[in-house]
């Protein structure tokens, strides 16, 4: 039995897509459902309560989250620019943009850890209030996704880059798939920011 996965580069005749792209989009569809369940939990708890606190009641900092939003949006742009650089076969620019993308992830996590430490120093924990339970669950799960994306992007920047020498098309597809995941992480934050900090 062959261990080679078919259609990783060439397109399947029936779908017109390679399996990598179908796989990552199916995975993202499952991620939509995962976060959808948590957003459903947020709605359930919010509409079911007679009083619902504002994020500022627990010291959630809008300026800090605003900066984090800009960081994540910027890293999404650098990610897509990394892919565009590979399409132009400009590996020097690819490495610069990919490095900036990883750096954006690090920046996001540093700001998030500052925010978490501020909550813990005020003894705000998930058990303190339903709002905080949702805040820690949603942002914690999102942060795990950021870390996962950073690991994949760092791999594609350093050890995984050697595939460019042997199979540049497959490597470009890998970067595109990693980018789709990274943009999804950005997309989730776009909804988390207003829901938790502003509304």
């Amino acid at each position: 039995m062959s261990s080679v996965i078919p259609y990783t580069v060439e397109k399947r005749p029936d779908t017109g897509l390679n399996n990598v792209k179908i796989g990552i989009w199916l995975f993202l569809a499952s991620e939509v459902m995962l976060f959808g369940a948590l957003f459903g939990g947020y709605i359930l708890l919010r509409v079911g309560s007679t009083e619902w606190p504002h994020g500022s009641d627990f010291g959630l900092s809008v300026p800090l989250a605003f900066v984090n939003t800009l960081v994540l949006i910027s890293s999404s742009v650098t990610m897509v620019m990394a892919w565009a650089s590979l399409m132009r076969k400009d590996t020097r620019k690819y490495k610069i943009y990919m490095f900036l993308t990883v750096l954006g992830g690090v920046g996001f996590m540093v700001i998030k850890s500052i925010e978490y430490s501020a909550k813990f120093s005020h003894h705000y924990y998930p058990e303190t209030h339903n709002f905080l339970a949702l805040y820690f669950t949603l942002t914690g799960l999102h942060a795990l996704h950021v870390v996962a994306g950073m690991v994949v992007n760092a791999y594609l920047l350093w050890p995984g880059f050697k595939m460019w020498e042997t199979n540049p098309q497959q490597f470009t597809n890998r970067v595109e798939s990693a980018g789709l995941f990274w943009h999804f992480v950005d997309l989730v934050w776009i909804f988390l920011f207003p829901v938790l900090y502003l509304l």
Partner: peptide
């Protein structure tokens, strides 16, 4: 997946329809 996503959001509204307060 988006259709099911909206189902996930609507299920709490439907099942808790008698107990909505729109906490503010």
């Amino acid at each position: 997946s988006l259709v099911f996503f909206f189902f996930e959001l609507l299920i709490p509204m439907v099942t808790e329809g008698n107990n909505l307060h729109m906490g503010a």
